[in-house]
Design a protein around this nucleic acid. Structure first.
Lengths: 331, 331
DNA sequence: GCGATCTATGGAATCGATTCCAAATGTGTT
DNA sequence: AACACATTTGGAATCGATTCCATAGATCGC
């Protein structure tokens, strides 16, 4: 049995296609008897309006797409949960796709916006160069979350990464740290801002650091371990380490602990994100909480404005407040 | 400036719409000069064929949708990476959506298959009742991964959960355990099979257990802690605990350790999934590795058959081999 | 040089749902 | 009873890309 069309429904119900469509969309007035007949026919044929035909005619899809390199971070999945809920509240469906850091695949997914497969795009961790992101963002309904390219026209939703890094570094200094190190991801766009905050806090305390170590590729537990190993091998061991993510911090703690050092007594360690790992680590990690779910909701709201209000390409970042979460890995 | 259509391209290139379409799809022969003119016009107007119009005419979308309750498990993201790669190899785009365990939202997403928004569906952790899953799966291009409903007509890709649980339980017994407990998730469809395997291994060793504890809701670190707490409060403490996931095992280890017990000397603990947490835990966890990425690839391959070969609704599960990973949490 | 075959092309029909316009029916007013 | 007006309905046009069919032109053999 082939798929039923609006024609079939009309025939079965003994009305015209116009009436069927009116019942489906509740647009203008339809008599109660007609509505009843149509609904009966719809049920009988188990009819569903074909999405492509509807989208073609309406010139919109009520779908948005969220892009990220991968999905294995709790921050990402929380952000996307926020996007999804906000989308649902507004009658949209939000879909997610992973680029795996593949330029071509990312291009293909961005093309889904260009060719009208979706109405809007949420970009988490772009692989393409900054200028391309800006070009796309200026022309299309796009919003960036968390990782936002650094440019005049930058726009999107995130925390104030510079301030957050400043705050947590200050906390480390306040608890007695004199020699600080930082483990950051080379690829991260937030990295430069965080390094600024880190250095600013040091400068205000009359300190400085030559131990900002950058990791490449997969910035996870093992990266944390191997970067910490470099610290251990260095001539002067820091007494506090600020890590780009909680997972890296966990790796760092593990490496230090295995080397016989005590955290936080010998070396304090701070993470970032307040992900599940922060609580699972021993000792539990001091970290910065990002309001990930809320960021997702706000991102969708701003995207919605771009999608529906003509020419509303407002620029500028929207900052959401972060929160310092102090646990046992710093004293 | 409105979106360019195939008509506009035809006019600009001085050819007919048929020729433009032929160039786009490389279908039948087009002269070199015409091809050149069309490509120039496409570039000039930065034209992209509208997805909905194309999908309508072709009656397929070259998109598949992968559904899961949430995305915060490494197994899920690896499975979906496999699906995504296999899809890309075949010219498909794979999209992901989270249901959050919400029936209505799940229904809405399944409807995307019914209304032709996508060509196929990969279901990870269905919220709807088993019979509904079966109904959907029998009629439409659907494949289940990992969590597969238990029915005659069951079909999908997973490991042999019963055997895997048997294997790891046997390992616990082989290393000296006499009193075993199991922490499982009430909602998980794989749970019953794993419990079978657990009990079978016990029975073969002449043992039995009245300590199969079921967790509800969010089955994570805290669930592991609180279930372990129940074990500690019980009259006879087990000497080995088999946990449904690594994260739960990590919670269990933490609770036991905080209570002054040593893992594995006093109590051995085993996890499941070989996720990142297994290595991050102290001691590192013995666990079962699921070939998640490969499962995703195979799942797409089977889905592709369902989507393209008429009436090919082969039934039955496809099992992929699991692997026991022995680490320090068992001795 | 003429019919036969092949290649390239234009243009109309098509996919299925929506929407506009006009017509038909019904209601109320004087 | 006649007219104005509101409600409901049918049906054609529309969205944009694809594809089938017919034809114009080129190529070939004899």
């Amino acid at each position: 049995m082939a798929r039923a069309t609006v024609q079939d429904v009309a025939r079965t119900a003994g009305v015209s296609v116009g009436t069927v469509s009116r019942v489906l969309n509740g647009s203008s007035a339809v008599s109660a008897s007609a509505k009843e007949k149509v609904n009966a026919a719809i049920k009988e044929l188990s009819y569903r309006p074909l999405a492509s035909a509807r989208d073609l005619r309406r010139d919109r899809t009520m779908r948005v797409l969220a892009l990220a390199k991968n999905l294995d971070s709790l921050v990402i999945s929380e952000v996307f949960r926020g996007v999804g809920d906000a989308a649902a509240d507004n009658g949209y469906v939000s879909l997610i796709a992973a680029t795996d850091g593949d330029r071509d695949r990312e291009q293909q997914l961005v093309d889904m916006l260009r060719n009208g497969s979706v109405d809007g795009l949420v970009i988490f961790s772009p692989t393409m160069p900054d200028e391309d992101v800006n070009t796309v963002a200026e022309q299309l309904s796009v919003i960036q979350v968390c990782e936002i390219v650094d440019a005049e026209a930058a726009f999107g939703v995130s925390i104030d990464d510079r301030q957050a890094a400043y705050d947590i570094t200050k906390h480390l200094i306040d608890t007695g740290a004199k020699k600080l190190a930082m483990l950051a991801h080379r690829g991260a766009r937030s990295g430069r801002l965080r390094e600024e905050g880190f250095r600013q806090a040091l400068a205000e305390a009359g300190l400085e650091s030559d131990q900002v170590l950058l990791g490449e590729g997969n910035f996870g537990f093992h990266a944390g371990r191997s970067l910490a190993k470099k610290l251990l091998e260095g001539k002067d061991l820091p007494d506090a380490v600020f890590c780009g993510t909680d997972v890296v911090a966990a790796g760092c703690v593990r490496e230090l602990t295995d080397a016989g050092l005590r955290v936080p007594n010998d070396v304090a360690v701070a993470g970032f994100d307040d992900s599940a790992q922060a609580e699972m680590c021993v000792p539990e990690l001091t970290t910065v909480r990002q309001p990930a779910y809320e960021m997702g909701r706000v991102a969708f709201a701003e995207l919605l404005e771009r999608m529906t209000v003509e020419g509303s390409h407002r620029k500028g970042r929207t900052f959401l407040p972060h929160e310092l979460v102090i646990r046992d890995s710093t004293k």
